[in-house]
């Protein structure tokens, strides 16, 4: 395959991994994070430390990165998820920026100048396999009682409590899984770029991920997949308009929120059943319209 296309696919896959996690948090649990770039950073730096400094194999290194990110998210969640209002949101914003600033000063990881020489373990095959596993696990979770509880929390907190759902616990679980996914995405990125720099995990990275989730549709895994593929490759193709890219992004977000907040997929999923239903609906419509003509 063309190396250029392969590169775009790998980047899409890395973004997708982080987006899947954020989709669980924002799309299914209704929490908004400005700090997912921070979780990616923790996952990325930890995984790179494991492979570079401890010569660990790739997959265990990724998992340790995920655990580290998840652990930090648990601390932030424990502090803020019980509070009402935007505390969680602002705390994640603070966390994301603080992570970047701290890494700027950690000379062990190269500080602000960056950290070159990370082995290039990430390739299209392992990115695709990891994403497929991640999607299957996430889809299973969403279909289970645990996933339904998260959706209930998103819909109506008080009613969830009354239905015996521990709202705090489910917010925390959602955040921890979400951060673990972001951590793996960070690890994949480190071993694809072979270079890490705190700048790569700035606030814009977090917002980019959120935009993909919204664009794809809150509460839809298929939407996230579609969103990650389109929004990662589109800017690559439209390089010439790079300055206007983010202007259009911003406008698109506003317009989506005002006119079609459900995003591209809007809670719908591509499954064999849903496709069947869609086709039978289309057929039904065609029949009806032909009847009308007679």
């Amino acid at each position: 395959m063309d190396a250029y296309i392969q590169g775009i696919l790998i980047l899409s896959g890395i973004n997708l991994m982080a987006v899947l996690g954020l989709s669980l948090l924002t799309g299914f649990t209704g929490l908004f994070s400005f700090g997912h770039a921070g979780f990616m950073a923790i996952g990325g730096y930890t995984a790179a430390a494991m492979t570079v400094k401890y010569h660990m194999p790739f997959i265990p290194a990724l998992l340790i990165g995920a655990i580290a990110a998840s652990f930090v998210s648990a601390i932030i969640g424990a502090l803020t998820l019980k509070l009402k209002g935007d505390y969680f949101c602002i705390a994640t914003l603070g966390f994301g920026e603080a992570t970047r600033l701290i890494l700027d000063n950690v000379q062990y990881f190269g500080g602000a100048r960056g950290w070159p020489g990370i082995p290039a373990y990430t390739n299209l095959t392992n990115v695709v396999i990891i994403n497929i596993i991640a999607i299957v696990l996430l889809a299973n979770l969403i279909r289970s009682k645990h996933g339904r509880n998260m959706i209930a929390v998103r819909e109506e907190e008080l009613a969830s409590q009354i239905a015996g759902i521990n709202v705090f616990k489910y917010k925390l679980i959602s955040l921890m899984i979400s951060a673990a996914y972001a951590g793996i995405a960070g690890g994949l990125m480190a071993h694809y770029m072979t270079f890490l720099q705190p700048k790569m995990f700035a606030l814009t990275k977090s917002t980019e991920l959120t935009i993909i989730v919204i664009f794809g549709g809150l509460g839809s895994i298929s939407g996230s997949v579609l969103g990650a593929l389109v929004l990662t490759s589109l800017p690559e193709i439209l390089r010439a308009f790079s300055n206007w890219r983010l202007v259009i992004y911003g406008l698109a977000v506003i317009i989506i929120m005002i006119t079609r907040p459900e995003g591209l997929m809007g809670g719908y999923e591509f499954t064999p059943q849903s496709m069947k239903k869609l086709f039978s609906n289309l057929k039904g419509k065609r029949l009806k319209s032909s009847e009308g003509r007679e």
Partner: peptide, 16 residues
Amino acid sequence: LYFIICAMGMSIFLEN
């Protein structure tokens, strides 16, 4: 949540 997202979109738009 939609308000926050919309605000974020606006912020990206203004800056860029």
